[in-house]
Design a binder for these strands. Structure first.
Length: 652
DNA sequence: CCGCGGAGTGTTTTT
DNA sequence: CACTCCGCGG
């Protein structure tokens, strides 16, 4: 059977698959078959007799783990029993298992990023921090600072000094906030994303826990290691250092999560951490045509801190030169992209094998309008998510109260939905609830608006744990629907979202795990994915994926690189890696586009992305100006004929 | 104390 | 252009 596996791999890939004992570092360039290596390594381990449950695969997203394991399971169903997931979900399970040891008696609630910001905002008001001072940082910034401090194990002062110098005058206040936030979370049973990792580290530092958990997983694999942060690196180390059977896979040139605390030294220091580590370099690219790789290599070449590497084409086809298309405005751009996509589709490339990528979600809005207008099905990844929409959060808040009555944020949220209840009333009621340990039944109803009683009764009705989740959900839904209709003009589509949520909840028989998943690993919102839809995705969400055709929207200085990154060398480098990730997603066809960003707010963006102005990079592109006059000609072409692409008569 | 309306501000990426 | 903050009327 080993021969069978070997026949699907090149020499280095096989080396990575067959080195099962001891530490292994795989540096895998884009398209070098990294996923295949993990897939076959799992199969190989199982065929060697390793019990699937003793293999742990830690990935960046749930989707990535699922994909690799289901591919492996297609060859050998035993692979379906391999443990796989994100660091956060792994940590959550660990914390749940050892909760007594950690001193968490009651229910736990996972705070997503939005919740954490809300909590901080509440505390800022409560502690009267920065009153009347408009320069006091916003909740989003505060959250980023606190998170960075946790992830890097530094004090608030150190973080401010390094990355937020202008906020140094607020150091004391923010440090106070950090303390208050810790207390607040402990009282309510809240865990934010950082806590999950921090607590996992704390547990695994305990020798006995490390022994128990370490012996449970004899083989550990970590994907996208370049994007792990300090805590995740430590979790991997603590899990594996006893047996040292650990493989990490990554590519430092694709590290794009520095903003979230990714610590790329993790990958550099891995060999030091695990002496005797075998390193395998996968450079052969099976994905893209030579001309696309040339562009990728040119970008790589201009990166300041590169790990010496060149992408070598395995396919041998030159392919077509990546396009650099210029437009006068977003409408022209959207129009052209749409017609380009339809052209390719006509040539035999289905929509499902095409993608449009962008740095920030807002860039894709004009295109979404254009696609909708022309009835082209598409699916959006990244950006605003289902579980972050107000109406979904509302309904989840009711459920969260049922799961954890100490959840102040949720109480506050649902109380504020009642007409006549504002911040003060909500706070008074919450204080009562808190004193009564989560019970609201003996409130003086006369002192409050009528809606309060209806809410309490509804919660009481929905609290019956013996009933299936969906029935409890229905109780809440019939209470919430009038609120929904009153609050949102577009309630019919939101009502539909809630039906979807109800459907998803039905797959769970435990409320706690449903809610934890909603925060950590949002369950797929559609039962059946759109089979033949075009993909629209942020570059971040496109990591690890590939398409026949890729369009990168908005190659504009100020968009990519984002203008937020202009004054930081480090952040600019990350933006450049982002470009590298984007262009290396394409197999056969790549187009980059530029549009003039209208002078809203006096700020106009009119320069091509600085990364594309680098000489070698510029030369690897075919530049075409489609602005104004050309765009009008296109309007004619789109009504039937193919126009622009006469020289690209390629069959896919 | 609630809630509405007007003014002002600042705009990424995600587990 | 969307969200937050502030001030005023009920």
């Amino acid at each position: 059977m080993a021969d069978e596996i070997k026949s699907h791999l090149n020499e280095r890939q096989w080396k990575a698959v067959s080195t099962t004992e001891g530490p292994l570092l795989v540096i895998a360039g884009p398209g070098s078959g990294k996923t295949r290596v993990i897939e076959y390594r799992v199969l190989h381990l199982i065929e060697k007799g390793v019990i699937p449950g003793q293999i742990l695969l830690l990935t960046f997203t749930r989707k990535a783990a699922q994909e690799m394991l289901s591919r492996a399971a297609a060859h050998d169903e035993r692979a379906g029993h391999v443990h796989g997931g994100t660091f956060h979900s792994f940590s959550y399970k660990l914390v749940g298992e050892f909760r007594k040891q950690l001193g968490f008696p009651g229910s736990l609630t996972v705070l997503d990023e939005g919740d954490a910001e809300e909590a901080l905002q509440k505390l800022v008001v409560r502690l009267e921090l920065g009153v009347g001072d408009t320069a006091f940082p916003k909740k989003r910034t505060l959250r980023a600072i606190l998170s960075e401090a946790t992830n890097k194990d530094k004090t608030i002062f150190e973080i401010l000094e390094h990355s937020y110098e202008h906020l140094l005058p607020h150091a004391k206040a923010i440090a106070r906030l950090e303390e208050a936030y810790a207390v607040y979370k402990r009282e309510a049973g809240y865990l934010d994303f950082d806590d999950l990792l921090l607590l996992a580290v704390k547990l695994l530092r305990d020798k006995e826990v490390a022994r128990v958990v370490g012996s449970r997983y004899r083989y550990v694999m970590v994907d996208e290691y370049q994007d792990t942060n300090r805590l995740q690196g430590e979790i991997a180390y603590l899990l594996a250092h006893a047996h040292a059977n650990i493989m990490v896979v990554g590519d430092d040139a694709q590290s794009i999560y520095g903003f979230r605390g990714a610590f790329h030294e993790n990958i550099m220091e891995f060999p030091k951490l695990f002496p005797g580590c075998v390193t395998v370099l996968l450079e052969e690219n099976y994905r893209s045509t030579q001309r696309i790789l040339n562009l990728g290599n040119a970008i790589l070449e201009t990166m300041p801190k590169k790990f010496k590497k060149t992408l070598v084409a395995a396919r041998g086809e030159a392919g077509t030169t990546p396009h650099m298309a210029y437009f006068g405005d977003t409408e022209e751009e959207a129009h052209w992209i749409r017609s380009h996509i339809q052209f390719l589709e006509k040539k035999g490339m289905p929509l499902s094998r095409q993608a449009v990528l962008f740095r920030s979600s807002y860039i894709s809005i004009p295109l979404q309008a254009e696609l909708t207008k022309h009835g082209i099905p598409y699916e959006v990844f990244g950006g605003l998510k289902f579980y972050e929409m107000a109406h979904v959060k509302d309904v989840l808040a009711y459920l969260k109260i049922l799961a954890n009555p100490r959840d102040e944020l949720s109480w506050s949220r649902v109380l504020l939905l009642i007409p006549g209840v504002g911040l003060k009333t909500a706070d008074t009621i919450w204080n009562h609830v808190k004193r009564e340990n989560g019970a609201a039944s003996n409130l003086e109803w006369g002192n409050y608006p009528n809606g309060v009683r209806a809410l309490v009764e509804t919660l009481h009705l929905a609290a019956e744990e013996s009933k299936p989740i969906q029935d409890r959900f229905d109780v809440l839904l019939s209470y919430y629907t009038p609120v929904l209709k009153q609050k949102f003009d577009d309630w019919p589509s939101r009502k539909n979202d809630l039906e979807v949520l109800r459907e998803i909840a039905g797959y769970y028989n435990d409320l706690h795990s449903f809610l934890a998943d909603c925060a950590i690993e949002p369950p797929e919102r559609r039962q059946k994915r759109k089979e033949h839809a075009l993909t629209l995705s942020t570059i971040h969400s496109a990591k690890g994926l590939e398409w026949d055709s890729v369009c990168l929207l908005g190659a504009i200085d100020g968009v990519l690189p984002s203008k937020m990154a202009f004054d930081s060398e480090e952040e600019l480098e990350e933006e450049q890696r982002l470009l590298y990730v984007a262009v290396t997603r394409a197999k056969n066809d790549l187009a980059l586009s530029f549009h003039l960003e209208g002078g809203r707010g006096g700020f106009s963006l009119h320069r091509l992305s600085r990364f594309l102005e680098e000489e070698e990079v510029f030369a690897a592109l075919e530049h075409r100006d489609y602005s104004e006059r050309r765009a009008r000609e296109q309007a004619v072409w789109n009504d039937g004929t193919d126009g622009v692409y006469e020289e690209d008569e390629v069959e896919y």
